[in-house]
Nucleic acid binder design. Structure first.
Length: 513
RNA sequence: GCUGGGUUCGUAUAACGGUUAGUACUCAAGAUUCUCAAUCUUGCAAUGGGAGUUCGAUUCUCCCACCCAGUACCA
């Protein structure tokens, strides 16, 4: 029995574009799992596809994680935001970018060849494409396996001398895994339980390619997880079909004893209709699918939660609850509470449809938990954009009174602009409803009373005379707000002051009569 | 097509053989307030279908249907 290993999990994104919310959730679950167990959360960049590399994607991923408060222990230096390239006590497995580890993989691939678990394949891309279309025309799918490899050009079918020649020649070749025949691979997934697959349905995956001297995902992933002493692999469900290959790879290397445990997370699905959440859904349906704004090479910008006004705590909270539940009825969790409560047993098996309404609800909840002071700090730049200069203490007071009415700080201006500038227009429907002589004549009398003795005195006056409270107050409200909505008249007057109150009453009189 | 995974109110989920199938979001109604929002109350609404196992199935087994993923010298 080996002694209990320190928990080490990794998030291994590929820098082929911005990380979307599903990716962030995968990172989050890894992070929660590690922190719950007092272990390490490692970032590794899987950039073994030289064709699909997207500039800026790596920095985006790191920035997104930082915004969410998902801080890696290893792999990225968070002070600089850079992927670590030099070994140190903190980062003993550097470099953490697979393209910078390229020298190490070939030997592992060749180890498999000499052990009989892999072979050299000399088929060109064209030959394979031809084989695929040929199979397709017969209504079949070409798979590179124990049957078909016998008829293809590789180190299993060609004489040794020719193999030697081809290996040293100018044409490209690959190392492929030699998938065993007729074996049942029995696997165990932390979320899905026991899964079995017959190897006859699997193909001989490419492990290493001569063309760019780089491993493919499968090889690099297994080798690095082993080298980095990863104990649990928590990744998206799309990897489940590759699990048998990965099990076999651990076996082929003789690393079964330290093979990590696997957990395949359910996918995030689009809110309506079928299919997984894709980057186009968001802008079409009015919600972000990315944590941060992303501008692609064509200049199109995709919305991010951050720029759309979500608090990172709310974003993390809503993501955590998409596919996981605490087993209690608690819904609001800080990161600290999530770490405490998280367990892989409570991760669900089925895909989760994302619900934008619930996302907004989370933000609303976090908004009202913020202090008036903090909200004021966030609101002040918005005010400045509207050309408003307001006293800080005043803004703090306003925030305290309006925060329960908003979902985002960005709503504040629409909700409360009348507390900073007088209305310039009056809502037509509300005018039609309330602005009648029998109402506004009384309203002006009450307004005079309010001006001299305060709102309470004005209300007294209405009650004593048994005037219609609602109609009169709404006429006054129309003058102050420009519509029949908003804070109580007493609050408004106490905020804007009696002089401004009088000016607004005078203005509506001029405008509407 | 093949292989694998999945299936509880519209959505996220709870109930891991015994509940009037719970909670939250959304929606609707009512209460409240000078209005709106907020708040409170109430309501609408689910075990995909069929066989079994069992005294008893949301829960276990099988079949079907549907959904998803994979099926690249991409991850």
């Amino acid at each position: 029995m080996s002694t209990e290993r320190r928990t080490r999990v990794r998030f291994a994104p590929s820098p082929t574009g911005p990380l979307h919310m599903g990716g962030v959730r995968t990172a989050l679950y890894n992070y929660l799992y590690a922190k719950k167990r007092g272990g390490d959360f490692i970032i590794r960049i899987e950039d073994t596809d030289s064709q699909r590399f997207v500039p800026g994607a790596e920095a985006y991923i790191i920035e997104a994680l930082r915004w969410c408060g998902i801080i890696p222990d290893e792999g990225v230096d968070m002070a600089t935001g850079a992927v670590v390239e030099e070994k140190s006590d903190r980062h003993p497995h550097a470099p953490y970018r697979q393209s910078q580890r390229r020298g190490l993989y070939r030997a592992y691939a060749e180890q498999l060849v000499s052990a009989g678990w892999a072979y050299y394949a000399f088929d060109t891309a064209e030959e394979l494409a031809a084989a695929r279309t040929a199979a397709e025309t017969q209504g079949q799918t070409f798979i590179y396996n124990a049957v078909t490899r016998k008829g293809l050009r590789n180190s299993l079918t060609l004489p040794a001398s020719e193999v030697e020649e081809l290996l040293n020649g100018r044409t490209d070749w690959t190392i492929r895994f030699k998938m065993p025949e007729g074996r049942i691979v029995a696997m165990d997934d932390m979320i899905r339980g026991h899964v079995e697959v017959n190897t006859d349905t699997l193909d001989d995956k490419v492990l290493w390619k001569r063309a760019d001297e780089l491993p493919t995902y499968h090889l690099a992933n297994i080798v690095d997880d082993h080298l980095m002493e990863i104990t649990e692999v928590i990744r998206g469900e799309e990897w489940l079909p590759s699990l048998p290959l990965h099990y076999l790879l651990y076996e082929a290397f003789g690393w079964q004893d330290t093979m990590p445990r696997f957990a395949h997370l359910p996918l995030l699905l689009k809110p309506v209709g079928n299919g997984k959440l894709s980057k186009r859904d968001g802008d079409k349906m009015g919600f972000p699918v990315f944590p941060l704004n992303w501008k692609n090479s064509e200049g199109e910008t995709y919305h991010g939660y951050r720029e759309d006004g979500y608090f990172p705590e709310a974003f993390v909270n809503l993501l955590a609850m998409l596919g996981w539940n605490p087993g209690t009825e608690q819904e609001i969790f800080s990161m600290k509470q999530l770490i405490e409560a998280f367990s892989i047993e409570h991760v669900s098996k089925s895909g989760a449809k994302f619900n934008p309404d619930k996302a907004k609800w989370y933000n609303k909840e976090y908004l009202r938990m913020k202090s008036d002071e903090e909200l004021a700090t966030l609101f002040e730049p918005v005010l400045a954009d509207h050309g408003v200069k307001a006293d800080h203490a005043y803004v703090v007071r306003v925030c305290g009174l309006i925060k329960e009415r908003a979902t985002f700080v960005a709503d504040f201006w629409n909700i409360a602009s009348y507390l900073f500038v007088a209305p310039e227009t009056y809502n037509e429907k509300d005018v039609a409803k309330f602005w009648h002589p029998e109402n506004y004549e009384l309203a002006f009398k009450v307004a005079d009373k309010i001006y001299s003795d305060g709102v309470e005195a004005g209300e007294e006056m209405i009650k004593e005379n048994e005037w219609p409270m609602g109609k009169i107050m709404n006429c006054i409200r129309l003058a102050l707000v420009g519509a029949s909505s908003g804070l109580g008249i007493a609050d408004i007057v106490s905020l804007i002051g009696r002089e401004e109150f009088a000016r607004r009453m005078a203005r509506i009189k001029e405008t509407l009569q």
